[in-house]
Amino acid sequence: MTFINKLKDFAVKSPWLYRINGGSCNGCDVELATTACIPRYDVERLGCQYCGSPRHADIVLITGPLTRRVLDAARRVYDEIPDPKVTVAVGVCPISGGIFRESYAVCAPIDQYFPVDVNVPGCPPRPQAIIEGVAKAIAIWRQRL
C-alpha cells in the first residue's frame, strides 16, 4: 500500500492541463496561454504541460460563462477526459456568470453542469492567481488518484 502511495506521490508531479473555452472574452484564455507557455511563469516546473487532446488531460480549466451554443460541445469534451480529473473554473464568469449573468445566452454558473473543484475569481485573474488555483487543484487530484 505504501508503495502505491509513493507512486501516487510521484504521479501528482505530472498534472497535464487542458482548457475549455466556454465562450469567454479571451481575457482568461490569454492569461492561461501566458501562464502555460512563457518563461516568466513556467508551469512546467510543476510538471504541468498543456495538451492538445482532452484525453491526455488531468486538470481541466474552464473559462467563460458557458454560452448555450458551446454547452454541448463543452460537455462532450469534458466527458472525453479520463478519470480521475479535477475541474478549475478560471475567472468570475464560470463561477457565477459575472457581468453576463442575466443574459439569455449564458448558462453560468457552470457548477450546474460540471463538478467544479476549484474557483479562481478575477477578471481576468493574474497568472500567479491561476497558478495558485492549479496548485489547489493538484492537492485535490492527489486525493482522487
Binding site: 507512486l7 510521484f10 508531479k13 505530472s14 518563461p39 516546473r45
Partner: peptide, 28 residues
C-alpha cells in the same frame, strides 16, 4: 530546451513522473 528558452523547466526525471501518472489513468 527550457533553459535555452529562458525557463527553469521540469525536473530531469519528469518523464518518469509522466509515465507513472499515465499508469494511474484509464485508457478510453
Amino acid at each position: 530546451a527550457a533553459r535555452l528558452q529562458g525557463r527553469v523547466g521540469p525536473p530531469l526525471i519528469q518523464p518518469f513522473f509522466d509515465l507513472i501518472k499515465l499508469g494511474f489513468k484509464r485508457t478510453m
